[in-house]
Design a protein around this nucleic acid. Structure first.
Lengths: 112, 112
DNA sequence: ATTTTATTTCGATAATTGTAGAAATATCGG
DNA sequence: CCGATATTTCTACAATTATCGAAATAAAAT
């Protein structure tokens, strides 16, 4: 993954409505939710939501499919996994034992 | 964790320079790196970098400590763990078996 | 064919964010 | 105390992003 793609993905999550959308999709599971239901659930006008959904999809965090008149959006679990791998790449120079310093429960393992 | 805090954290990562800073800190490990070294490594003016570092710290993704004239910034592994937990909360309604649909290797386990 | 339902694209405005020089603050060494 | 080094705060300008009504597109029902 390239840095520009990661910036776009984090940018997609860096907005109140879009973050709520993504969490809703994560909780909904692979079948997804229609654009209309998402807009209604979050009390946002359809046109605004459409914009946000496009941003999330472009960022590689969701996929969409048309089914009759509705468009279903679903979380892209593979996309988020790639993003987190990129973020934590070479954590502690690849030596997780460096992370656990002192009494605080800080460790690469719980993160990477 | 509250949504507003998560938005701030993702916002901190949603910018080329700051994302590079965070990844540098993740790779550097718990000892951290001085503000000056970070600015030099990424070829960014000190005042601009100072702003970015403050944003990352406010977002709960890094900690800072003064040591003589230098200020060391270090990745906050606990902070990032909390953020990811919030993001993936109740993935697939808590039933990971829902994630693995079909042949594609999509699963809550590899993400959550 | 026309109407109804679902969603997107357009366009304009409002709000937020990034940038970096100059000045201010903090720490150390002589 | 004074000069050098490290970093932050201030300030102003440029650039990006969010919002949402209106019009356009797409699919289904009558």
């Amino acid at each position: 993954m390239e840095a520009a793609a990661a910036v776009a993905a984090f940018g997609a999550l860096a907005q109140e409505t879009r973050l709520a959308v993504f969490r809703l999709l994560v909780q909904a599971g692979p079948d997804g939710v229609t654009a209309g239901d998402i807009a209604e659930a979050l009390k946002v006008p359809a046109s605004t939501m459409s914009h946000h959904l496009a941003t999330i999809e472009r960022a590689g965090l969701a996929t969409s499919r048309r089914e009759s008149r509705s468009i279903f959006y679903a979380a892209d679990y593979e996309g988020i996994r790639k993003l987190l791998t990129f973020l934590m790449e070479d954590c502690c120079q690849g030596r997780p034992e460096l992370c656990g310093t002192g009494s605080t429960a800080q460790s690469c393992d719980t993160v990477c």
